[in-house]
């Protein structure tokens, strides 16, 4: 009993020391480094003005009422605009879009300073997204699964 306890104390300390000597760090040095998100990542949404047929399905299926059809006075066609104050990135709008006018970008690391910056009416909705970290010149890292270390982050070629 007593010896078992001592052995377990020693084992616990030895395990700690093992990791102290040979650490298994998986930290990504964000914002110096940024992970390249997986192919199908559901990030900020991009809107293709020309493909849109104004069917309104995206606004109808949006669970958070973030997507709205903006109807301009005098214009017949309403176009979708998104409100990132509410968007929950479920991707239903993209999956239901019958013309693939909506698509995911692989950018999700954004923060805003003002509330109205987060409103994206149709015109602004078409703008391209770039990751702020990459704009600052972050190294892009690919995630690799590894038996020894769990996750490894290797620079993208």
């Amino acid at each position: 009993m007593f010896r078992g306890k001592v052995r377990r104390h020693v084992e616990a300390i030895a395990t700690g020391l093992k990791y102290l000597v040979k650490p298994n760090r998986i930290t990504v040095y964000y914002p110096e480094e940024a992970i390249v998100l997986s192919e199908r990542y559901r990030g900020m949404i991009h809107y293709d003005w020309d493909k849109c047929i104004s069917c309104g399905l995206c606004a109808m299926i949006c669970p958070a009422d973030a997507m709205k059809m903006y109807r301009k006075k005098g214009e017949k066609k309403a176009r979708p605009g998104i409100n990132y104050q509410r968007c929950i990135f479920c991707g239903y709008c993209v999956d239901i879009c019958p013309t693939n006018a909506l698509s995911f970008t692989r950018v999700h690391d954004v923060a805003f300073e003002k509330l109205d910056e987060m409103l994206y009416p149709p015109e602004k909705f078409t703008s391209e997204w770039r990751s702020p970290a990459e704009e600052r010149g972050a190294r892009r890292l690919r995630v690799v699964f590894d038996e020894e270390r769990g996750l490894k982050h290797v620079p993208e070629q």
């Binding site: 998986i26 998100l37 997986s38 192919e39 199908r40 990542y41 559901r42 929950i88 990135f89 479920c90 991707g91 995911f104 995630v143 699964f145 769990g150 996750l151």
Partner: peptide, 19 residues
Amino acid sequence: GDREVWIQLAEELTGARLT
């Protein structure tokens, strides 16, 4: 830390980390 491994798997399958 090890949970991230499984989150990463789920993310590659579904496109979102948690939801």
